[in-house]
Structure formats: structure tokens, C-alpha cells
Design a protein around this nucleic acid. Structure first.
Length: 200
DNA sequence: CACCAGGCCCTAT
DNA sequence: ATAGGGCATGGT
């Protein structure tokens, strides 16, 4: 899983690829697809963007919905590379202050999470959850991800009256320290808990 | 055999 | 605004 925090650009790109492949698909199948990409040395945005569509489809086939996902991946890869790559997208988080605590937002350069989110949402195959997964798990932005497990948890524990995506995202964000590590870990725990419940 | 898995797009009301 | 069908594989 993506419990280990990505550090290198390559690892971050792998998380982005995984975010698309895992849509409505179990992780085992996604893992096979990712391993296929790795074995073919194509587990990067550049490779995914350049690969002939048919080749890409073949490699990611185990993840299911492989024809649409292959198109989605190429669109996302091309968009990110054209806009300067993962490093550029992280500039707001990680520019000239790498070794220091982050300065206040108004002093930072680069696009913030809200701007990146709306750009990601214009891409085919990137909805709210995928956009937020990319921001949180690949780019270390403090954006809480709402998935089916989270919605189910909120519902069964009666934590909120509404269950639409934006409402829940803001609810979690407003009630947690605004730190990406907290969001990553809590969301991961919700998923693990959800999987446990499924077994019973 | 049926059902499901960390969605999203498109179309029809 | 919201509902429903389509997309596809491997595990249980």
C-alpha cells in the first residue's frame, strides 16, 4: 500500500499512477499493474506519457477498466509534465526553504492546494477523491481525502448530517491539525479499519 | 456462480 | 441536482 511516505520524485509519480489505477479496484490488482510497469521500466510519468496506448493498456490490464485508465494516465502524465513536473507542483510546499520550517502561505511561491485541485479536476479521470489523493499522498498537501470507507464511518457513527464530498472534507479539515502527516495517517487508519469491518 | 474493490464519465430526467 | 449504466480484472 502507500503507507510509506513517498520521498523521491519517482515515488511520488508512482503514487499518482496508483491513484488513477486504484479507482473502484482492489489494491491487489493495482499492485500487479504497478509491478508490470516497474518491470518494464515504465513506472514514471514520462514513460507513461510516451508509451503507445496499446502497450500501456497491456501493462496495466490487471487493474481493470484498463482502456479508460490508460487514457486517463496519459492525460494526467502529459498535463503534469507540461506544467513543470511534480517538483514544480510542490513548489508551494517545498521551494527555497527545504531545510527550514515552512514560512506562512503568503510568502510562499507556487500554486497552493486549492489552485492545483481545481486544475486537477479539469482532467479526464480525475474526480474529487483522486485529486485529493494526489495532493495528499503524492504532493504532501494537507487535504483530507474522503472515500467510501470514510463516508461509511461517518454514516455508521452518525458523525454528520450530510454526506456530500465537500462538506465532509471541510468537516475533517476543520477539526484536525492542518498537517499532511496527520491527514495521511488518519485516513490510512480509516481505510484499514474499513477493511477489517468488511471481513466480518 | 455472484459479488466486490480507496471512482469517474456520460447521458437522461 | 441527481440517478443509472458502463467501464474489466482477480479474489473470495
Amino acid at each position: 500500500m502507500w503507507c510509506r511516505r513517498p520521498k523521491t520524485i519517482r515515488q511520488r509519480e508512482e503514487v499518482i499512477i496508483g491513484a488513477i489505477l486504484t479507482q473502484n479496484t482492489n489494491w491487489q490488482n493495482v499492485n500487479k499493474a504497478i509491478n508490470n510497469l516497474k518491470r518494464a521500466k515504465k513506472c514514471s510519468l514520462e514513460a507513461v506519457g510516451e508509451l503507445p496506448l496499446a502497450k500501456l493498456e497491456k501493462l496495466i490490464q490487471p487493474s481493470g477498466f484498463y482502456k479508460v485508465k490508460a487514457k486517463y494516465l496519459q492525460g494526467v502524465a502529459k498535463y503534469i509534465l507540461e506544467s513543470g513536473g511534480v517538483g514544480k507542483m510542490m513548489e508551494f510546499n517545498y521551494n527555497i526553504y527545504q531545510h527550514l520550517p515552512l514560512p506562512p502561505p503568503q510568502l510562499r511561491r507556487g500554486k497552493n492546494a486549492r489552485e492545483l485541485r481545481s486544475e486537477l479536476l479539469t482532467l479526464k479521470g480525475v474526480g474529487p477523491e483522486t485529486a485529493d489523493s494526489i495532493l495528499l499522498y503524492a504532493l504532501d498537501f494537507p487535504v483530507f481525502v474522503i472515500d467510501e470507507y470514510t463516508k461509511r464511518l461517518v454514516k455508521t457513527r452518525k458523525l454528520a448530517r450530510r454526506s456530500d464530498y465537500e462538506y465532509l472534507r471541510k468537516l475533517f479539515e476543520a477539526n484536525l491539525p492542518k498537517k499532511f502527516e496527520i491527514y495521511q495517517d488518519l485516513h490510512a487508519l480509516i481505510v484499514v479499519e474499513g477493511k477489517e469491518q468488511n471481513k466480518k
